[in-house]
Design a protein around this nucleic acid. Structure first.
Lengths: 191, 191
DNA sequence: AAAAATAATCAACATAATGTTTATTATAAT
DNA sequence: ATTATAATAAACATTATGTTGATTATTTTT
């Protein structure tokens, strides 16, 4: 997953292929993007593309995995840090990250992105932040699982709206809102 | 959008093309499905395919629009009916519909479906059921919009889990849960 | 700095899907 | 029965795909 051990030529090749793919992806759907086109834009021989990726979708998955890895490292940095952030502060940092990587996040977390990936990364983030997972009393295990599913995708929808709206509201605003919503959901059932 | 005015030959052609496409779609991703393949399975000449659709994605969109239309008609029937269903009963009917059209709904509302379509249809259903849209006091318009986005996608996530779990829980169970969750969300902010 | 290892390029190739056209056949509507 | 329309069949040029082998360029190792 990491290209740490790649020599410089390989690093360069992968880098420009990814850049060209992302450039094309921001103009049209992945189904309309050809390998030929990516290679021409990147000025990389098509045979070289096949040495690294099997097709556009393989390339996309590799980029997804990198994004996941980067988010993971980013979160770890704040977690093992002396910073000792509370939950709202931690989620706020996530939104700062999304804003710093706006182009990529818009493409991969937006409506046209791969929802399987989106749920995967949202679940990861959620579990890093909410430890007392589903312990509200008076809620059955099955109901709790549905609330969980509701929350994961609900947060995703809010993030998508934020990205679509040009990230106008502050990370702090978004964080406080989502923490309140996600935390308040199980209580809706108890009362 | 309706094939009411099509002659019998056209109806047949469109029908078998859709059937074959859906059959293929339940085995592999749309990006791996070729027009040639659809036509061979349907035993329809490829030139005829092009007379009706531009490509697989066009065919998919047409099926999406039909599903939307069918859901719309289904809801209307219960709405203008003398039945006078309350909200929980109405949402329950939606789940009955999903179950009756399980194969199609699994494909088009599932994780691998088109999220743009999914939000579109979820928004439509939501607005048919929740009339007192976002009127909780003490919540800003902007916050209300985010709660709305959260709710739409949250419901989608719950439905996807239900479809993935083989629709074991009853429509009644799902309806009561979602109505409670969706209705309770704004209150999380007030208190 | 030279040698060895590895990556990228180039050109060529077979294969397959695409999109279009034209004449012909089959079916439906009037 | 006549007319209109749809589907078929066959052919075609075009394009992308995936693979190969020889050559060139770059990096790493000694």
């Amino acid at each position: 997953m990491k290209s740490e051990k790649d020599d410089r030529r390989v690093k360069y090749t992968k880098m420009v292929l990814k850049e060209s793919f992302i450039k094309l992806l921001s103009h049209k759907d992945i189904s309309q993007i050809t390998i030929k086109e990516i290679c021409e834009d990147a000025d990389i021989n098509r045979a070289t593309f096949y040495a690294h990726y099997s097709d556009q979708y393989d390339l996309m998955r590799k980029i997804e995995n990198e994004l996941f890895e980067n988010v993971s490292v980013y979160i770890e940095e704040y977690t093992r840090n002396e910073a000792n952030l509370d939950r709202v502060e931690m989620v706020e940092k996530i939104f700062v990250y999304l804003k710093q990587n706006a182009q990529l996040c818009r493409l991969f977390l937006g409506e046209r992105g791969d929802m399987e990936f989106q749920k995967r990364i949202m679940t990861f983030i959620y579990e890093k932040n909410i430890d007392e997972l589903m312990n509200a009393e008076g809620v059955s295990k099955e109901t709790a699982e549905y609330i969980y599913a509701f929350t994961i995708t609900g947060c995703l929808g809010a993030i998508q709206k934020w990205l679509d709206d040009g990230m106008k509201k502050s990370p702090r605003f978004m964080s406080e809102m989502l923490v309140k919503l996600a935390g308040g959901l199980p209580e809706v059932f108890v009362k």
